[in-house]
Amino acid sequence: MEGISLLTITVLAVFVGFEVVSKVSSTLHTPLMSGANAIHGIILVGSIIVAGQASEPLVLAVALLAVVLATANLVGGFVVTDRMLEMFHGRGPGRGTRAAGARAVDDAAVVPDPAESAVVEASNPAHESGAR
């Protein structure tokens, strides 16, 4: 692609990046940082391109190391963000209200919610098989 179009895109992306996080409450700073962290794991695409062109063993080895690191960033980043966010729920349905007594809260805390863990389980293989 021509340099000037890339520059145009870069400048526009800077403004989108500024706009998209300009008014976030401090409550969500950590998940937002973690989510942004996962997004730059997309360097995996670059690592794959480089590894796919490698012809010497040494170059391939270094490129594959980059693939491993980038995958760790990408997959780990999204999974850890999801784990943080699954903790965020308001006084929604399906949860004991606080007036229902300490026992309900305790139970909910000890017994893992099968629906929630199923989502995490399901989202991961999807990642990996998609990447394959």
């Binding site: 895109i9 870069t10 800077v14 990046g17 996080v21 937002l32 997309i42």
Partner: peptide, 26 residues
């Protein structure tokens, strides 16, 4: 920019810009 890959440019710039704002907010 090195690889001429638009997605890397956009995603990286997004994180760079939003990360800068977030750092200042923190």
């Amino acid at each position: 920019l090195v690889l001429g890959n638009v997605l890397l440019v956009v995603a990286g710039t997004l994180v760079g810009a939003s990360g800068t704002i977030l750092t200042r907010a923190m």
